[in-house]
């Protein structure tokens, strides 16, 4: 146990150095696939704004109606998300189209 922990610590440290301090442990191929946004108008904006605080997986694993995505965006704006009214329209449109129900 002790040894494996030390090994993990060294592995993380190497990873840290190799990635110039980018502290994301490697994901499995399956996870990477699941955590990718569908390409389309708005996907870059969702990536730029939402991943400031959230993993993509938190978004792509759920399905919500337009109204629910709108409510989600309102809460995120209350929590400081840098989303303008124009962003909001694009993001809700994108999420409803690709992650709607």
């Amino acid at each position: 146990m002790k040894r494996s922990r030390a090994f993990r610590a060294i592995a993380y440290l190497s990873l840290l150095l190799a990635t110039g301090g980018l502290l994301i442990p490697p994901l499995s191929a399956g996870q990477q696939q699941a955590d990718k946004l569908v390409d389309g108008p708005g996907s870059d904006l969702v990536k730029a704004k939402c991943t400031l605080c959230h993993d993509i997986g938190n978004i792509v694993r759920i399905r919500q109606s337009r109204e629910e995505w709108q409510d989600t965006l309102k809460v995120m704006i209350r929590r400081g998300a840098p989303i303008t009214p124009a962003d909001e329209t694009i993001i809700v449109e994108y999420l409803t189209k690709h992650y709607g129900k």
Partner: peptide
């Protein structure tokens, strides 16, 4: 505190569900 440093102190059986948060 970086996530990697936190997880390095945890038991290897612990699984990270999300990085952010």
């Amino acid at each position: 505190v970086p996530n990697a440093a936190i997880i390095a102190e945890k038991d290897p059986v612990m699984k990270v569900l999300t990085e952010r948060p």
